[in-house]
Every structure is written in C-alpha cells, then in structure tokens.
Write a protein that binds this DNA or RNA. Sequence first.
DNA 1: CTGTTAGCGCTTTCAA
DNA 2: TTGAAAGCGCTAACAG
Lengths: 333, 333
Amino acid sequence: MATIKDVAKRAGVAISTASYALNGSTKVSEATIERVLKAAKELNYQKNGFASDLKRTKTNTIALILSDMSGPYFSELIKGVQEGASGNQYDLIACSSLGGERSTATKFLREKRADGAIILANNISTSIIEESARSDMPIVVLDRDVENPFAIHIEVDNKKGAYEVTEYLIQNGHETIGYISGPPESHDNEERFKGFSDALKDNNLPFQSRLKITGDFTREGGYRATKLLIAQQKLPDALFYANDEMAIGGLQAFDEKGIRVPEDISIVGFDDIQLAEYVSPPLTTVRQPKYEAGALSVHMIFQMLAGEEVDRSFHLPTEMIVRQSVKNKKLSD
Amino acid sequence: MATIKDVAKRAGVAISTASYALNGSTKVSEATIERVLKAAKELNYQKNGFASDLKRTKTNTIALILSDMSGPYFSELIKGVQEGASGNQYDLIACSSLGGERSTATKFLREKRADGAIILANNISTSIIEESARSDMPIVVLDRDVENPFAIHIEVDNKKGAYEVTEYLIQNGHETIGYISGPPESHDNEERFKGFSDALKDNNLPFQSRLKITGDFTREGGYRATKLLIAQQKLPDALFYANDEMAIGGLQAFDEKGIRVPEDISIVGFDDIQLAEYVSPPLTTVRQPKYEAGALSVHMIFQMLAGEEVDRSFHLPTEMIVRQSVKNKKLSD
DNA sequence: CTGTTAGCGCTTTCAA
DNA sequence: TTGAAAGCGCTAACAG
C-alpha cells in the first residue's frame, strides 16, 4: 500500500509538498501538483483516513447506534439522520450494539471513532453512554434518559400517544382493555403503559392485571402473548399492543382461532410501521415522527458540537392513525 | 481528553507499561495493572481507536455499503453479514453511498477505513471499486461484475428466477405479457429482463415492445408505469414487474381503475419483500436468498483476507413463491 | 516485570 | 513555493 511518502519520492518532492498538492492547497505550483497527482495515480495511492483523523483529532462522522440495524422500523429515522448529516458534510455510519460490551457500538463510543452518536439501542448500557458522552462526543439518546450534560434525550411522546389511543378505545365503548407489553425494561414500553393506565384511570375503568401480558416487541412475542390470552377464555373488549409488530402477531393468533378483528375484539398498536396499513384489518395505531426524530437528533449533535447551550430533553408529538381494527361498540350493541 | 500518556504519568509508570496494563497483557504485575486501571478510571480515559488502528494497520471492521441504508429490503442481507462478521470478531458498519463521489462510502473505500467491503449500491461507480479493491481491502460486489482480482461478485440468479416465473405465467395460459422494468442501467434489471424474454422466446411467444415500460424500482414508479399501460387501453394478460415495490404500486393503480387482480390481469413481482405477503392479493414473486447472500459475502471477504484463492463469481438460486396474483386462465377460460 | 524508543501515515508550523 | 521536522496517540520490539 503506497503511502504519501512513496508519492513524494516518486514525484521528487518533500512529503509536505505532496500533502499540500494532494489536498488542493494553493501554496503549491500547478506543475508540482500535477507531478504529485500523476505519481499518486501511478502508485494507486489512497490516503489512510485514520492517519489524517488522528492528526486532526476530528472524524467528521457521526455514528448511529442501533440494537439491530435491520428492522424496517429504522428506515425513516435513518433517513432523517442521513440527510442532516450529509447536509453538514458529515458522514453517517450505522453500527449495531449487538454483543453489548463487546459490540461495535461500544467500540465506537469508547474509542472516539466518531464526533457524535445517536443511540437507539436498549441493549447498550447506560453506564457506557455516560462514560462516553463528553464535549467532543455529544450523544443523543432516543430510548431513555441519561444523566450527563453531553447526552440529551429525544423521545416521542409515548405516554400521550398511548393515552390518546386508549381514550379512543374507550370512546368507542370498550371497557375491558388488555395490554400486551414490550420487554419490561424498555423505557418506551413503560411510558406507553403509563399513558394507557392513566387513560383507564381518568375514565374510571379498572385495570385487570390478568389482562397485562408481557411480550417482547416481536411479532412472535405478540403471537404468544395473544395465545396466552385466548387460553384464558374470557377475551377483553379490546387490546392495546405496545407496538405494531406484536399486534400483527396477535392478528395471526386470532385468525388461527377464528376470532374476528374487530368484530369479536378490537385492537390497536403503536408505531405505525409500513405493514400496519396492509394487514387485515388495517391497524389503528399511533404514528411516531421517526423522520423528525432523526433530523432533530443530528441537529442537536451539531449544536452541542458547536458548544451551544441546549435543552436536555425533547418530546415529539405522535399522531393517532385510525384504520379498521377498532369497532364502535356503541353503534353495534 | 486524557491520553495514555496522562494515565501513565498518573499511575507513575511508563507509557508502554500503561499500554500493556490496559490491554490485559500478562507481562505486567497485578499491582501495576490495578494502579493503571485506577488512574485510567479517574481520568475517564478512553483509548483513541484511530491511533491503535493506525499502529496496527488493521481495523477489524468490514464495511457494508448500501445505496440507501434505509429500505426494508436490506434487513435480511444485513443480518447475514452481521452474524458472519461478529462471529469472527469483526465489526460491521453500514454506510451510505448517497452522494456518489463525495459519499461516506467512497471515503471508506478510498481511505482504507475498513478491512473489506460489501457493496450493494448502484450509485457507486465501478471505477472507484476497481481502484479500491486490493489484497488488504477485498470487496464483494452484489450488483454488478467488476474487473479486479480482489473484487468478487455474488448475485442471485436473476435470469433464472425471471425465467421460471415467466414460464409459470405462460403455463397458466397467459400469452401477452408485459414487463415493467427497473432503471435501465441496473444490472439486476437487465438480467431479469433477459430471463423474461428468453422464456417468451422459448415458448414461441412474441414480445411486444409497447408492453415494456420503464420504471425505477420504486412503488411510485410502478404506479406511474402501470397508469401508462392502462392508458393504452389494451391490457396484456399478465405483467412482470421487475421488483415487488413496483408491483405494489401497480396494484394501487389497478385498484383505482377498478381493474381486478388477478381476475382481469395477472401480475408477478421479484424479491419477495415482506409486504408481498400482505398486499391484496398476495403477490406471486421470486424470493431472493438475501440472508445467504450476506453470509456468503462476509465469508468470502475473510477468505480473501486470509489470502486464499477464491472463485470470482457466485450465483445463488432463487425460489418462486406462488401466491394469489396469478390466475389460471386455462381453467377459467 | 518495567522503561525506552521507534515508528504507523498524515498534517502543519516554521524556516529556507 | 518548497522542505525539514514535530508530533497526533498508540503498540511492540528491545533492552534493562
């Protein structure tokens, strides 16, 4: 692998001159630039990015850390981040936190391989985030709150969104409403559950703990949880799934038992993933402003990088998307 | 930002000793290790990853370069790559080729920011790939063929897959069959079209060029192309969409005009994206082994990194997925 | 077991 | 306009 040294030698100039020429400085004569460029091409020279980053102590990249990296859920978020980053001549790279302590994500955070990070990965520990956040490595955390002046928190208003859709269920005449939860340690899940139970309480509806079943945000988990509920024999009027994936799993479980949605039971989800519109029946759910969350995240990173004073916490509004998975009991009963 | 020097000083040892201690070498006494670790913790020391990569001239990461980084399409592929990489203690990072020459992807390739790369990004130029591929930066290209011993080519058998599904259409009694193409410069599209027209030819069916309409692999493009076709008044018996996204766009166009699928026209897609199963009617299509493609890609990268002799080209088999978007004309006519 | 030291490849100051 | 040289922070060979 040719280095700048080789290029300089071949062009018959000093290393520094080669560096200037390669970086398009005006300090070097046309003729020299040409000679250097020619030498570089002949040697198929490629600069070593690490060396220059090291020298400049700046990477011009921001890292997006995801628990999964696959998952259709992240598309929109990524788009928001991507556009913001490239608009500022920053690079965006995505990496996975799979593997916890030993993951790529941890490495990026710890080893300052990026100038900032956006994290949506429940499997990365809060302590790592807190240790890593600093003025030259500002962090935006999307799925929890963190105690560190250089880590701010952006989240959609899970609680309010859950409250609204639960209220919608109630207004449609549903009284016994179950909750299929995400993993108990999930902050999002917790907030959604709070919104859900607040709505129940405010409407003087009791919450039966037998109707809260723990899932894990996956389709499979929703399927299993729903099966469990069906096995209890007494189905509630409606079901709140803590996310759409689980709701879709639930749909399948109901379908297998010949239970019709929404005729026999109404359901709602959360997220408004792309599939929600296509399943049968189309899912009533709450939409998260994912693109906006992504865009805001990068924006805040840049603000922090610029040393500006920023708010420590943001809540983005959700929107209820009414489709056809909820029956109006007041009309039909 | 504390450096290893600061840590060494604070612990009262030499830099190298600090380095050894930090990296868990056995050459250092327990007591020293402890002192160093303590100092590091007190200073909130984080090592600079670039510096060590630079020193070791090895990054232990492989880059996955995508044109988009969003797009549900990539999920499976990513999973295959991710698992292969982390299984070998390598990091995977994904980056986007959005922005062409000036993209993050180009930077990674050119500046040797990874030990190898997997590319699925039609908007990155072949010349960049050819210039970047070398023994210490092997590349797997998924969407074209490249002339470079260190860049190998893995693709699903687009031609055969297209051939099969076209033949399926023919066997079901369809005779005039249209083709909604992807972008003309797409290699995948080209291969699919070849398979399509070969099947026609082998069955002595003429191909009418008015029935080939150019789309762009997006839902919107499929929608527009379909509208165009509908405007021609004479609908063919069936339509081959070069990918599922476009087929779903087409479904919408037909729906708006009250044209029923498959009663009035049969359609097939390509890819078998997740949605294909959920649209109405469920789409008959060709499944690509995306996970396998991803897994094989990393595997080959490691082979090349190890200096082994490898095949320059791989073709992965596809599988036809029969659902309900094709009518059997022989039965009903 | 610990310390000295020579770079990795690059940028950039300073002097010529 | 060009060149010499000093590091960026780290690893590792070598010497003690």
